[in-house]
Design a binder for these strands. Structure first.
Length: 212
DNA sequence: GCCTGGATTCCG
DNA sequence: GGAATCCAGGCT
């Protein structure tokens, strides 16, 4: 299988993200068809990228080879999964936001509890739970079978005409950059929520600060 | 060292 | 709309 398109230059990461729609991701007996992804450029241009200020202990795998998994912990409770893209040192990545469970439904249901099938992997943290992966997947290859994840080509082609794009979800910076791609009309695509700054807490927030 | 706020989800 | 719940990264 040819995965060389994953290491197209970081400038092309939006195209890489779009190309990932319909690809399938298998882990722990569950297979997911990707229906929603977001592109993040690496160092420099993209203030929304974890890597935009350069490598740190957390983001070091983003600077490694394409096709590896970058997982990160957010909000004190959730894990999210990215595919590292671009050339080594560029740190581009594609956040896997949602997918349709097409195999191992019973396993995914066990992991996700009593939710509708379309919600099993509808959202980046939910997708990670459905796949049964976590921090141990960070830095592993998603393309050579040595890690818990395996990325494989679409078994069902995606019609380019049904691909939609728009602003990234929950991103404060660069909200006008339309680097989120999804399969239009697919019920497993997560509902769009614009970034809402959390209200400040504590005394200073209560003194003369309008609550909007 | 301290402090802020987040590529979210679930519940009220 | 807000809480839950941790820590990376920026700043003092």
């Amino acid at each position: 299988m040819d995965y060389s398109w994953l290491d197209a230059p970081a400038a092309a990461v939006p195209d890489t993200a779009r190309s990932l729609l319909g690809w399938e991701l298998t882990a722990g007996g569950v297979r997911i068809r990707l229906t929603e992804v977001e592109a993040y450029a690496g160092t420099g241009e993209d203030p929304a990228s974890h890597a935009h200020r350069g490598p740190t202990p957390r983001t070091r795998v983003m600077f490694g080879p394409a096709g590896h998994a970058y997982t990160y912990f957010v909000f004190g409770m959730h894990w999210c999964l990215n595919v590292v893209c671009g050339r080594e040192g560029e740190a581009a990545a594609v956040l896997l936001r949602a997918g349709e469970v097409i195999d191992g439904l019973d396993i995914a249901r066990k992991r996700r509890g009593d939710v509708a099938d379309r919600d099993l992997a509808r959202g980046p943290a939910r997708l990670v739970v459905a796949l049964g992966i976590g921090p141990e997947a960070n830095g592993t290859s998603m393309i050579d079978g040595t890690g818990p994840l395996l990325l494989t080509p679409p078994s069902r082609p995606v019609d380019p005409a049904e691909i939609a794009q728009g602003p990234r979800v929950g991103v404060a910076a660069a909200h006008d950059v339309p680097w989120r791609y999804w399969i239009a009309g697919d019920p497993t695509v997560s509902p769009y929520r614009r970034h809402v700054p959390r209200r400040r807490t504590g005394a200073s927030a209560r003194v003369g600060v309008p609550t909007t």
